[in-house]
């Protein structure tokens, strides 16, 4: 859905893992931004009906960009800064907390 403008790097580029796939990221990106760059599809499926959803506001007020980050469910991706090697997982429906 989104792409990076060329010649804009002011900080380090590195990679993170999204559902097991390696994806490009840069210091200063949020998890939601990286997901928008990584693919066009849904970021999650709604906990009510399973409908496809993705980031809407990018400022923490819509709660659409909920993802699992390093094992912690329902993080607002637009408020989490990426770090090298971060493991991001899309959430399909209601998170499991019991193993």
């Amino acid at each position: 859905m989104f792409q990076r403008l060329p010649d804009t790097a002011t900080a380090a580029d590195f990679t993170v893992e999204v559902d097991g796939t390696t994806c490009a990221a840069r210091a200063g990106d949020t998890v939601a931004a990286v997901l928008l760059m990584a693919g066009d599809g849904p970021m999650r499926r709604s906990v009510v009906s399973g409908a496809p959803r993705a980031a809407y506001c990018m400022m923490g007020v819509c709660f659409e960009c909920l993802v699992e980050v390093d094992g912690l469910p329902s993080q607002q991706g637009c408020l989490v800064q990426v770090r090298p090697g971060m493991r991001i997982k899309r959430q399909n429906g209601r998170p499991e907390i019991a193993p």
């Binding site: 804009t8 496809p52 993705a54 990018m58």
Partner: peptide, 19 residues
């Protein structure tokens, strides 16, 4: 997915230079 606010896109531009 794909419908966002203009503000969201502007944040993408400012923080990540994404369009």
């Amino acid at each position: 997915p794909g419908v966002m606010t203009v503000g969201a896109a502007q944040i993408m531009l400012k923080t990540s230079f994404m369009v």
